[in-house]
């Protein structure tokens, strides 16, 4: 695909290109190009977060692939790829002829896989939290109050 070659230095600055779309009053997605996160991953991450926090509840309808692509002005295959991943992970389901909905929560991963994913998330969180110069206790306190809030007052 490519050949080895000599090198040069070049840098370039470009303006960010963002777009936000709100559906009803519930689902909101912000796309940033020129991010280190691919667009389909941005959609997956944001929907995952909104479902986890209860902002999107079980049974809530999501826009169709075509509609979301149109609203965000992105390639429909990108949305389809994001939806496919969420569907594979059991977070959303498509009902024949009726559209895409937030699915009932069910365990579709093995314990090992869930632990691996939890460790991944903790890794990222812990690195960021420690870099902000908080003590372990302060971080633990805030995370438990956040968990409290998310599990007891959905929506």
């Amino acid at each position: 695909m490519l050949t080895k070659s000599d090198l040069t230095t070049k840098s370039k600055h470009c303006t960010m290109h963002r777009s936000t779309v709100t559906f009803g009053s519930i689902m909101q997605i912000l796309i940033t190009t020129q991010s280190t996160t691919p667009i389909f991953r941005q959609i997956v991450d944001q929907l995952r977060r909104q479902i986890a926090s209860g902002q999107l509840a079980v049974g809530d309808a999501l826009p169709s692939v075509r509609q979301l692509a149109k609203d965000l002005v992105i390639n429909p295959n990108t949305v389809a790829k994001a939806y496919a991943e969420l569907q594979r992970d059991g977070l959303i389901e498509s009902r024949q002829g009726r559209g895409v909905f937030v699915a009932k929560r069910r365990v579709i991963f093995t314990k090992t896989e869930r632990t691996r994913r939890l460790d991944d998330a903790i890794e990222r969180f812990a690195a960021e939290a420690l870099s902000l110069d908080f003590s372990n206790d302060e971080i633990l306190e805030r995370i438990s109050s956040k968990l409290e809030q998310l599990t007891h007052e959905p929506g």
Partner: peptide, 26 residues
């Protein structure tokens, strides 16, 4: 995107606008 309509018709586009390319291209 509307012209392409989820893969019905084809587009070949040359461009320097990399953020537009990132948005719309397969």
């Amino acid at each position: 995107l509307d012209f392409n309509d989820s893969g019905a018709r084809t587009v070949l586009i040359s461009s320097h606008m990399l953020d537009d390319i990132e948005r719309i291209c397969d």
